[in-house]
């Protein structure tokens, strides 16, 4: 019952968000597009965070998704947005599947450190590769939509709708995943891996799947972000980019799929506000919010919703 209600609620929000685009100022649509693209990366981190794993290198997949789009456009002239997004997701997924064999053996800070190292390898390569623009990166060709080539505000609306569509499908699938055996094993694996193995299932296999899911989502997010920004550069793989995603993940918490999207939107809004009004205090704001969240809301902002619900349930 409850899941049907949240499904309908989500659908209503989605339609409202999509219809709002023409009435919003351009900068707001762009901001929302980037926020919702990044939310996919966050959603991937949420999948990992539920087993207690933090990846300080999720920017690896983000960057792979972004460069996959940019390079395909540059080398082949192929610009269909949907196909490119899928390509970004698949590319990042393949990389995640291969390094997953390795990552799945690690836990806690070792997992965080190894993913950090892997993303820094990519950063190191990109920074020194002159044919790819080194530190400056290069521009992404203007995307098209099944042969239709919008410009200006139209283009940003189409990108926004595409992002919303990908988000909706991803959210639905991840929601289903959380209800599957593999998804439901998150808390058990965090609690007691040995018991899980003795129930007849491979813990590293499950973690490997989670790494792949997070990788695909990271790639999709990076691909959408690259088209929306119109530019890619090695900083997309740098550890501070990963740090930003981790920040939103902790802020959002692991309880609700929707929290990733709300959290990401709030983050981007806060960022654009802070960069305008008090650029020299932006990181301090981030750090303080993160600290307060960890200290006082360890389950993330999403847990506010469940607390309210409980309170309402207790009251007659």
């Amino acid at each position: 019952m409850q899941s049907r209600a949240s499904l309908l609620g989500g659908l209503a929000l989605l339609v409202a968000a999509a219809l709002a685009a023409p009435f919003l100022p351009d900068w707001m649509v762009s901001l929302a597009t980037i926020a919702f693209a990044n939310a996919l990366v966050v959603l991937g981190l949420v999948v990992l965070w539920r087993v207690g794993l933090v990846s300080f290198g999720q920017a690896l997949y983000y960057c792979i998704g972004a460069y996959a789009v940019a390079l395909t456009g540059r080398w082949t002239g192929f610009t269909d947005a949907l196909a490119l997004v899928l390509l970004g997701g698949v590319g990042a997924g393949i990389v995640a599947a291969s390094i997953g064999f390795l990552l799945a053996r690690y836990r806690e800070i070792f997992f965080a450190m190894l993913s950090l190292a892997l993303s820094m390898i990519l950063y190191g390569v990109l920074v020194k590769t002159e044919s790819l623009g080194s530190t400056d990166g290069f521009s992404v060709a203007t995307p098209t939509f099944f042969g239709y080539a919008p410009h200006g505000a139209q283009l940003s609306h189409w990108l926004y709708w595409l992002t919303l569509g990908v988000d909706a499908i991803a959210a639905l699938l991840v929601g289903l995943y959380f209800r599957s055996v593999a998804g439901a094993l998150a808390a058990p694996i965090r609690d007691n891996e040995i018991r899980v193995e003795f129930l007849g299932i491979s813990v590293s296999g499950i973690i490997h799947t989670k790494v792949i899911i997070a990788g695909v989502l990271g790639g999709l997010g990076g691909a959408l972000a690259a088209m929306s920004i119109g530019h890619v550069d090695p900083n997309m793989a740098y550890w501070t980019t990963s740090g930003g995603f981790v920040f939103v993940t902790v802020l959002a918490g692991s309880g609700y799929v929707a929290a990733a999207f709300v959290g990401s939107l709030a983050f981007e809004a806060l960022r654009s506000f802070a960069v305008d009004v008090m650029p020299q205090l932006w990181q301090m704001t981030l750090g303080s919010v993160l600290l307060l969240t960890i200290l006082f809301l360890p389950e993330g902002l999403g847990s506010l919703v469940s607390r309210l619900r409980q309170r309402r349930a207790v009251k007659p």
Binding site: R179, S180, V181, A182, L185, T209
Partner: peptide
Amino acid sequence: GNILTPVT
């Protein structure tokens, strides 16, 4: 199989 089976 792990993904396609709902836990409940």
